[in-house]
């Protein structure tokens, strides 16, 4: 059994690819590891590749939602990429819509989308010392 899912740091981003059939504890450990890494590296975005996952059940679905929510609170964007078509069909029928989770078809598209999400976010951030209308931030 695999004990940990490796998380790679690339610039402002964290990348991880789930290549194993995850047991529940592994999924819980991943949530914790990822959260710690986001804070440690001040990461702005996380890309999660699930193209090797043959199923996503409600437990893994919930883990992905948790990761997205916690990351948002830590000011990092999350994108899930590479879901197999059969997995997507099954997820919807199961009743999980993964609401609030950004997705992309593959790693390349996901990376571009993530960069854009983070760039758009940066625009909203005030330059140091610059006076600005506070209402712009309030709308974020």
């Amino acid at each position: 059994m695999v004990e940990r899912i490796p998380i790679l740091k690339m610039g402002n981003f964290l990348l991880l690819s789930i290549q194993v059939d995850m047991h529940d504890q592994l999924a819980l450990d991943l949530q914790e590891d990822l959260t710690a890494q986001i804070v440690k590296h001040r990461s702005r975005g996380v890309l999660i590749d699930i193209s090797a996952l043959e199923i996503v059940d409600s437990f893994i679905g919930r883990m992905l939602s948790h990761i997205a929510q916690v990351s948002r609170i830590l000011d990092a964007k999350v994108i899930v990429v590479g879901m197999q078509p059969a997995v997507a069909i099954t997820l919807v029928e199961l009743g999980l819509s993964l609401e609030g989770i950004a997705t992309a078809l593959n790693v390349e598209k996901g990376m571009r989308r993530l960069e854009k999400m983070v760039d758009d976010d940066m625009i909203l951030e005030p330059e140091s010392g610059e006076a600005r209308d506070i209402s712009v931030e309030a709308g974020d």
């Binding site: 043959e54 437990f59 197999q84 059969a86 069909i89 029928e93 199961l94």
Partner: peptide
Amino acid sequence: VSQTKIVTAAS
């Protein structure tokens, strides 16, 4: 798709 469904249901 059927394979994925029965495996997910089993899980």
